[in-house]
Computed example of a mutant assay.
Amino acid sequence: MAAPAHVPVLLDRVVALLAPALERDGSILVDATLGLGGHSEAVLSRFPATRVVGIDRDPDALALAGERLAPFGERFTGVHAVYDELRDVLAGLGLASVDAVLFDLGVSSMQLDVRERGFAYAEDAPLDMRMDGTSGPTAADVLNTYDVDDLTRVLREYGEERFARKIAAAVVRERSREPFTRSGRLVELLYAEIPAPARRTGGHPAKRTFQALRMEVNDELAVLRRAIPAAIAAIGVGGRVVVESYHSLEDRLVKQAFTAATRLDVPEDLPFVPPGHEPALRLVTRGAEKAGPDEISHNPRAASVRLRAIERLSEGAAA
């Protein structure tokens, strides 16, 4: 299998945010969304005493990343798992804590570039969209079994699609004639249902629906809701969690989890913080950092990125 092109978003900035946690000997990074291993390769090259545990639910991505990172030998360990299984992964490796956890959320270049996976709307392909193609319902299953209300909810919440109910009704109508199996037919339906003025703005008219189906098939928000607190709990003192999000709902979950972890455990009107009540964690980034115009011009995927980081200052309630 030829390795698809892969350009990690904000690579230098991500490595810089991880650096303070990884500069000591024996440090461990969990790359919770390994993909093709671009971030892990940069870390292993930059920090020669660091070990990386790479997690991915996609066996194909694990295989390709494993080949890419083979020169680093035992410093890299690949694990087939979903990233909300972080606690179990670390327990299985005998690790009580780690120094950093990185999430680069959303669909990977590998999944977009391999036509048969069905993630891309530019080519006709089977409607699969599973990040782990070995188990679970496909996008075709969602389209062919959800009722109008459930389809509307998925398209509206995950795709922020203005014409969610119109599209959902059309899908239910058309599947009664013939079940959906391939992306090309879905794209044709979307062109027919989305009014022409709306099709001329906001990118490809299928973008929002395909994103929504992918997030539903892979249960991405529920997985993330469990994974971020697990990552925060996994880091030791001086450890960092760094997250790249590409969807407003993802970024909102990350922001909420980071805010909760750094909140003062004292009444708001107290004029000072009593010893022992300082937050166990601090925000490293001010708000969400974004990519600059130069990076976006070279890597369009960077246009929607939101980057946040948090650091553990002491053992505490969020541990």
Rank of each mutant, 00 (worst) to 15 (best):
Glu311Pro: 11
Val14Gly: 08
Thr262Gln: 05
His277Glu: 12
Gly287Lys: 05
Tyr83Val: 03
Ser40Ile: 06
Val79Asn: 04
Val187Trp: 13
His204Leu: 10
Leu249Trp: 02
His298Thr: 10
Arg117Cys: 06
Val305Gln: 04
Ile28Tyr: 11
Gln256Trp: 04
Gly136Thr: 11
Arg306His: 10
Lys255Glu: 13
Leu189Pro: 08
Thr77Glu: 09
Arg115Tyr: 00
Arg87Leu: 07
Lys166Arg: 15
Lys207Cys: 02
Asp12Leu: 05
Val114Gly: 00
Glu161Thr: 11
Arg24Met: 02
Ala198Asp: 04
Arg308Trp: 09
Phe163Tyr: 15
Met110Arg: 03
Lys166Tyr: 04
Leu264His: 13
Ala231Gly: 10
Tyr146Asn: 01
Arg226Val: 03
Ala318Val: 11
Glu188Ala: 15
Arg286Cys: 00
Leu213Thr: 08
Ala234Gly: 09
Val14Leu: 09
Ala260Asn: 10
Glu244Phe: 11
Val107Cys: 11
Arg130Glu: 00
Tyr191Phe: 13
Ala120Gly: 14
Arg199Tyr: 00
Ala70Thr: 12
Arg226Asn: 14
Arg306Gly: 08
Asp132Ala: 11
Thr285Met: 06
Ala302Val: 08
Asp31Trp: 03
Arg165Thr: 10
Asp104Cys: 09
Ala319Arg: 11
Arg57Tyr: 07
Leu22His: 12
Gly136Leu: 14
Tyr158Asp: 06
Phe210Ile: 04
His39Lys: 05
Leu90Pro: 02
Arg177Met: 05
Met131Pro: 08
Gly276Cys: 03
Gly133Lys: 14
Arg46Trp: 00
Thr259Val: 14
Leu36Gly: 15
Leu307Trp: 10
Glu160Lys: 13
Ala317Asn: 01
Leu22Ala: 12
Val254Pro: 04
Leu11Ile: 10
Pro229Ser: 09
Arg240Ala: 09
Glu188Pro: 00
Val187Tyr: 14
Glu220Leu: 03
Phe258Pro: 06
Val53Ala: 08
Val52Glu: 01
Leu105Tyr: 12
Ile28Ala: 11
Leu22Tyr: 08
Arg312Trp: 05
Asp88Trp: 11
Lys255Trp: 13
Leu36His: 09
Ile228Thr: 13
Leu44Lys: 08
Asp99Met: 06
Arg115Thr: 13
Leu253Met: 12
Arg153Asn: 05
Leu17Ala: 04
Ile232Thr: 04
Ser135Arg: 15
Asp31Thr: 12
Gly202Cys: 14
Val243Leu: 07
Asp124Met: 10
Glu220Ser: 04
Ala61Tyr: 01
Val43Cys: 12
Val43Trp: 02
Phe76Tyr: 15
Tyr158Trp: 00
Arg286Gln: 14
Glu67Ala: 14
Val53Ser: 07
Leu10Val: 02
Gly276Phe: 12
Gly203Met: 08
Arg175Tyr: 13
His80Leu: 15
Gly203His: 07
Arg185Phe: 06
Glu289Tyr: 00
Leu102Tyr: 02
Glu85Leu: 01
Arg13Lys: 13
Ala19Ile: 02
Ala230Leu: 08
Ile296Phe: 00
Val148Asp: 15
Gly202Ile: 08
Phe163Gln: 06
Val89Ala: 03
Arg162Cys: 01
Asp219Gln: 15
Gly37Gln: 06
Ala168Ser: 14
Gly118Glu: 12
Phe163His: 14
Glu123Pro: 00
Arg252His: 12
Val7Thr: 14
Val243Glu: 04
Tyr146Leu: 15
Arg226Ser: 11
Val89Ile: 02
Gln111Leu: 03
Arg185Ile: 05
Gly26Lys: 09
Arg177Lys: 15
Ala21Thr: 04
Ala100Leu: 07
Pro8Ala: 09
Val89Leu: 03
Pro4Asn: 07
Phe119Tyr: 09
